[in-house]
Design a protein around this nucleic acid. Structure first.
Lengths: 135, 135
DNA sequence: TTGCGTAGTGATAAATTTATCACTAGAAAC
DNA sequence: GTTTCTAGTGATAAATTTATCACTACGCAA
């Protein structure tokens, strides 16, 4: 297995949090799981741009970091459900804040990001899953 | 210059925000700038584990993304000051939340992160700069 | 006039993360 | 019997991000 060669900075809370959310699809996974998309197959369908490989790996990391927990039903065909741990739930305000910030500034961000010389293309698909502010 | 080959997902706000904060030191830079550490040389001193090269690059990206602005004083020796733009300021609640979440869960996170098979070493230095909740 | 402090760039290597593809295994549908 | 669905692993290539080092330029101090 791959082993990190450069020490991970964990001086401030910022870096700790960053490490936990570090992964292309982790915030999206947490958001989905918090919105009751629990099963791997549903998650794959919800995030079609991600390969199942990466999602599987990132789910495992989230699990190892204690953010989500995995329940395996001893059935055939197999059934698995992921859910947030207590600590995982406390991350939701951050996920929501990121989601809202991005949406609130979408026009501005799309214009600057697409002006970014290193970004040639973007894709939009359907991960739009929003928690109501006051449900 | 490097050009991205895989389309950047910008479907949900989560990905937009992630792109803006995407960079090992960007959250730390934004936090520092918000705490009145404005000059590059001060930022380098504050974040000694980062090479000046990366910080320079990430500052430029933040600037291009409209999150910070750069003021160049026509002096010798040169003087530059970075500050948050209006939009950049609206990111602070997220930065703060990440900072607090990480600090609040430090004990737990340190234990799971250091149990992570791919993480062999960590470093702590002095980026501890906290905004008062109610100052 | 060598060294330090200022802010920064360019080239390139190394590290890290994602992508791609093949493959396991059992049950049910056709 | 072949396909489909379930959840997942392993090997490897490719993409992306960081790290390292050399170098520009000017002024000031010893």
């Amino acid at each position: 297995m791959y082993e990190r060669k450069i020490p991970l900075p964990i001086d401030c809370g910022l870096h700790l949090t960053k490490e936990v959310l570090n992964g292309k699809w982790k915030p999206a996974l947490l958001n989905a799981i918090s919105m009751d998309v629990h099963r791997p197959s549903e998650l794959f369908r919800l995030l079609p741009e991600a390969s199942r490989r990466v999602l599987t790996v990132q789910l495992k990391e989230l699990e190892q970091h204690g953010i989500i927990k995995k329940k395996i039903y001893p059935q055939l065909p197999p059934k698995v459900e992921y859910s947030l741990t207590e600590i995982g739930q406390t991350l939701l305000p951050i996920i929501d804040a990121m989601n809202h910030w991005g949406d609130n500034n979408r026009d501005f961000l799309e214009s600057v990001i697409e002006r970014d010389p290193k970004i040639v293309q973007t894709t939009k698909s359907n991960c739009e899953l929003h928690r109501r502010s006051l449900s």
